[in-house]
Each structure stands twice: as C-alpha cells, then as structure tokens.
Design a protein around this nucleic acid. Structure first.
Lengths: 219, 219
DNA sequence: CTATAAAGTTAAGCAGGCTTAACTTTGCTC
DNA sequence: GAGCAAAGTTAAGCCTGCTTAACTTTATAG
C-alpha cells in the first residue's frame, strides 16, 4: 500500500535521483526531517514492495514502479501550486507548503480537472516541469545556476528551486520572479555570493540563494 | 493535539448533537466505519482534552472548545464543496468524498481565500449553512423532510443531506436539485415511500431517499 | 423484580511510522 | 593497510488509532 509517508519518500528519492546521484540515507533523512534510522527502516519496506532498489550502505534508486508513483505525486504538487496561484491569487511563498499536503489528498479526477482548468500546462510557476497524466515529463530547457554565471553577462530566470517557503518569500520581496532579467555585476569568490542588477537596482545574493536560481544566457 | 481522526470524531458528534440528540457510541461508530470500542477509546481522550463531555454509557456532547473545532472542520468541508462545484465544475456526487479529505489539509489562509472567491456564501450547494470565520452558523430556513409532506401540496427542495456520494448521484440522475419544485402525488404508508411529480414526470422515492430531502411548503 | 437483549466498555494486541542508543560498514588519511 | 570519523543500520520501544474478544451496564418485557 502506498501511504502518505511512502509517497513523500518516493518523491524525495526521485528528486535526488533526478540530479544524477543515488539518494543517500542522510540526505533523504534531512529533507524529510526524520532520523537516518527511519530511512533505513522505510528503505527495506519500499524495497520489498518493489518500489526502490536498495543495497545496504549504497543508497536508493527508484524502480519503474516507484518512479510512476513519484511522478504522480510530483504532478499533483505542481498542478496544485499552479492552481492556487492562478485561481486563488496565492503567492509564490504560500503555495509550497499547501501543495505539500494537498498532493496526498486529491483524487485523479480532481487533479485532471485542475489540469484542464489550467489548460494542461507544461511548467509550474517555479519553472519546474509538470508530469503529464501518462507519466511523461516535459523537457526542461537548459539552464545554469546563478552560481555559475559570468560577470558582465545578462541572464533570465527560468527556474527556481521550490523547496522552501522562506526562500520563495525572500525572492518575491527582492523582485526575483520567473522571467526576470538580471545583469551580473560581481561574484565574491570567498563566499560564492553574487551581486546582480535588476531594473537598475543592485541585489546581493548569498550562495544558498543563488544556487536555487536557474537562468539562461541572454547576452 | 487535534488530529485528522479527532476532527472527524468531533464533526460527527456535532452533526448528531445538532439534531438534538446526544451522540451515542454506536451511531458515531457506524458513521465513521469503526468499531464501538474505538469510540469508547477516543471518547476518553477527547474528554480528557476538554473537547467533549462524556459520561460512560451516556453518550457524548461537545464542549464549547470541541464545537469550535467541529465548526472549523464543517466550514472547511462546505467551502471546499462549494468551491469544487463552482470553480472546477465538479458534480454534486463527486465533491463530498473529495471535501472529506481536503477539509483536514488546508490552511486557514487557503480556506479564507476560497471563502472570498465565493463571495462569502451562507449556504453550500446542498443548502447546508457554512460556518463563518468567527464560528457563527448562518440561520437555516425552516424545512420539513419529504417524509412528512402532505399529498397534493407543492414544495421546493431547499436542503439535501450531504452524507453519501451515491445518494447525491441518484438525486442528480433523477433531476432532484436544490430549488427544484415538486408536487406530492402519493405516500405509501407501509414503506414510508413517496411519489412526487417533477416537471410532469412521476418519481418514486424510498424512505431512505425522501428522508434526506428537505423542502419548504409552496402551495 | 428479574431475565435478557442491546449497547457500551475494557483489555490485549497489532500495524505504521517514528525515536534513541548501540553497533557496523565505509572510505579516507597517513 | 591501520585507524578513525562519518554514514548507515539494527534493536528496542513509543504513540496513535484501530481491531477482536470478553465482560459490564442499561433498558425493557413479562
């Protein structure tokens, strides 16, 4: 049986796998705010159910079956976020936590109605691809993190990491939105922070923040 | 702490209390699809938390504190139902089960946004009053059950009991909506069923169904 | 007033999803 | 390749919300 907890484990493992790495115990534990022991425990169960492949001390990877569930949860999450912003005028910073709960408590029929309401979008308001009903994931345009940009160039924000409500609120407060254009003024090597100019205004971005913002090169 | 399970117990007790009776173990158990033992168990806990008053073998009644929580859940449920119908075009029969889950997983802020979207309605699509943010309940117009009507008279449906998705689907299929006008053709005393005419068409309604439909006298 | 059925309660136990504490494995440094 | 810190695992146990089975209370019929 796929419970709320299991859905969250699978979703988190998917996101880790998706960056190329096998999901390791402590990272998943940190993300889910549970102990490492809880991960080992659940890894056994998910493995037995055929949802992940798991070798002790070697991290976790989703099976096709597990990925299917993860994508279904991700679809729900991203559609809910999109819907709450579009239909109810909620803000970037509010919707993540809300969607984090709603994603586990909506019927397929409801999710499909939301999808239809939004005209079957490919991307959510953070620029993340929304898994389709059939399980496919729209192709994400190439992007680099704001950590890796070059001084003097101009870029456009095409994706932000939707992992943290506080971060979202901070971005909103500083006029950092999807599609915002920015010029790189300076990079401070000793702390990996970046200084950018948006609409003529200089903004300082710490490594933590800039690494959550993904851009494409403009000029 | 108020958990999902406790919210459901309180909501169910409220609905029973609201009809005038103290909520008895077996009725609440039946409604929640759990054993009587589970009710006794939970009654102790809710009582200890000051949410209900409970004397063994004597049923349960909400305290002011418990009623506050119950009304908050009811508000969420009825606003969600209204919203799903209005914003997403879902049907009477679909929304109950959906709202039954969503009511436990929405922030106050989200619920208030839904309330605003709907222009702060007093009644939901079943004619049930929607508790206000401040905990007050809009006054319900006087109504009688379709069981108690008199042959020959004409009535208008002003409320239906939203307890069962299957019932809702049945009503929809038979053109029984809120505000529908109907004429009472006959009542069969031996099984308490009723025969009514709607738009010139005769419809047979069993006791179970007619007792869930509430009407006001027209002529 | 008593017998009895119905309703309610208690006790023991289970499953899920955690925790902490103790232990094991890994992999890196020297 | 020995030693050690970090990462991971196991074991025991807790809490919630249920279950079933056995028992108690209540209400009612005669």
């Amino acid at each position: 049986m796929s419970t709320i907890s299991k859905e969250n484990y699978l979703k988190t493992i998917f996101i880790h796998n998706n960056t190329g790495e096998t999901a390791c115990t402590s990272k998943v534990a940190h993300k889910l705010s549970v102990s490492n022991a809880a991960i080992s425990d659940m890894a056994k169960k998910l493995s037995q159910e055929g949802l992940i492949s798991y070798k002790k001390y070697r991290g976790m990877e989703l099976t096709a079956e597990g990925e299917k569930i993860a994508l279904r949860v991700l679809r729900r999450h991203r559609l809910w976020e999109s819907f709450l912003i579009k239909a109810l005028g909620m803000s970037w910073g509010e919707v993540h936590d809300e969607a984090e709960r709603l994603e586990h408590h909506s019927s397929d029929s409801l999710i499909d109605k939301i999808d239809e309401y939004l005209s079957f979008p490919d991307f959510d308001p953070h620029g993340e691809p929304i898994p389709k009903k059939n399980g496919t994931l729209p192709k994400t345009p190439k992007s680099i993190s704001l950590n890796e940009v070059q001084i003097g160039n101009t870029y456009q924000i095409i994706r932000v990491n939707d992992q943290n409500s506080e971060l979202m609120k901070y971005l909103t407060k500083n006029n950092l939105f999807l599609n915002t254009k920015l010029q790189v003024i300076d990079k401070l090597l000793f702390d990996n922070s970046v200084i950018v100019k948006i609409n003529g205004k200089k903004i300082f971005l710490s490594e933590k923040i800039s690494s959550s913002i993904f851009v494409k090169f403009l000029k």
